[in-house]
Design a binder for these strands. Structure first.
Lengths: 216, 216
DNA sequence: ATACTGACTGACCGATCGGTCAGTATGCTA
DNA sequence: TAGCATACTGACCGATCGGTCAGTCAGTAT
């Protein structure tokens, strides 16, 4: 089934795009090894040989998919550094925004997490640096500034707080399907509720404060 | 290379044990699809046909590995319900103990997490119920009791606190290799330090408390 | 017309996959 | 001694894997 002459002329790379999209779908849900080039070709409605015409190898195709997901993820994360409002508000906004983005772009998120958390263990440094490094550092900087201004406790590690915030979001994304089956859990399908409680707990802690009855 | 007569008599199932061990190693580090039966047989120093003599199929072998990991994990988790000390102490102990166990039995942990977080998405309920359900519920019960006794804030969801605690440990386990490459992170190789800071933040929060200069 | 290019295909390749099978060695039971 | 079960092996199976190749077709520039 060849494209019409008009298509062949105007839409450059449209086929490659379809292949990339199909590959991203399959890799995200089932991982690298479990997906075959035959399957990708079938999903993209092209011949397998055509896939190899556009990409040198399966690994090359996978790398292209991951690279695209990385740039996509970077662009989204970069928009979260809104420098306005109180620190508590910014904290809240960041947590909720990050989780919302992850859920909206679940496919991309899944690819990134897969690559980051359980694959080669060798590309860790490179990927971490390129995709998350800057944003992690930015979040740490915001927290440090909060410490300098006296809004945050000075006796804690800002990197630890950032890790806790990001980790809570990542874990929610990963474990939703499991959490949904726990009787006590009511927030598995309410990410905004999760984010609100997350920020609340991280900011104020869980201990009862007998002399602190006021609420901010 | 057959075993000596004495071995064949005395050590029942020793070969099957070696196969299970090799399979657990490989499945834990590379996942189901990326590991071949040839490879498992080679690691266990037996013929591939012998692997099929002891296990009906690759999937059967995998299920056996997962099942063992589950019972192992259950037994370990069950030991964490020490009902003594203040709530803060118990909280601290539970967090640190759980993380220490996960790291000590990294292979088992990796298999469980792999199965729970990113595989079938269908076995979620079953596995969650059998492996983590009781312990999650127990942790929630402890937190609820803390609320009833006035030690914990009453305006928060105990399941959320439990999720946060477990999620923080899981994320640390998963993301250590990445965290290690962040300049600001100093705790990637200090799980006890991580646990201490985790409990501290969850208990007291990160906001500065101007009227709360006392430290517990 | 000619020559050339890139997109695309079906047929094919060697390797490896999960799995089977006939056959051997060993020990237990009668 | 015969008979039987279990442990184990090498050789083999069809299917599928990632990847190649010769060739077709459309468009374009000369």
């Amino acid at each position: 089934m060849s494209a019409s002459p008009a298509e062949a002329l105007s839409q450059r790379g449209e086929t490659a795009e379809r292949i990339l999209s199909a590959a991203a779908d399959l890799f995200a849900t089932r991982g690298y090894e479990a997906v075959s080039m035959n399957e990708i070709a079938r999903h993209a409605a092209v011949s397998k040989a055509n896939v190899f015409h556009h990409f040198n190898s399966k690994h090359d195709l996978y790398l292209t998919v991951v690279r695209r997901a990385c740039t996509h993820s970077r662009e989204r994360l970069a928009g979260l550094g809104s420098p306005q409002g109180s620190l508590a508000e910014r904290f809240n906004t960041f947590a909720g925004g990050m989780l919302g983005d992850m859920l909206d772009q679940a496919q991309v998120t899944r690819i990134i997490l897969r690559e980051l958390l359980l694959d080669g263990e060798q590309r860790g440094p490179e990927l971490a640096e390129r995709v998350f490094g800057d944003n992690f550092a930015a979040l740490v900087a915001v927290l440090r500034e909060g410490q300098a201004q006296g809004a945050l406790r000075r006796d804690l590690d800002p990197a630890m707080v950032a890790t806790l915030l990001i980790g809570a979001n990542v874990f929610f994304f990963e474990a939703r399907d499991v959490l949904r089956h726990f009787r006590d859990v009511s927030f598995a399908d309410k990410p905004e509720s999760y984010s609100r409680m997350l920020a609340d707990i991280l900011l104020k802690g869980i201990l009862a404060a007998p002399d602190n009855t006021h609420r901010e």
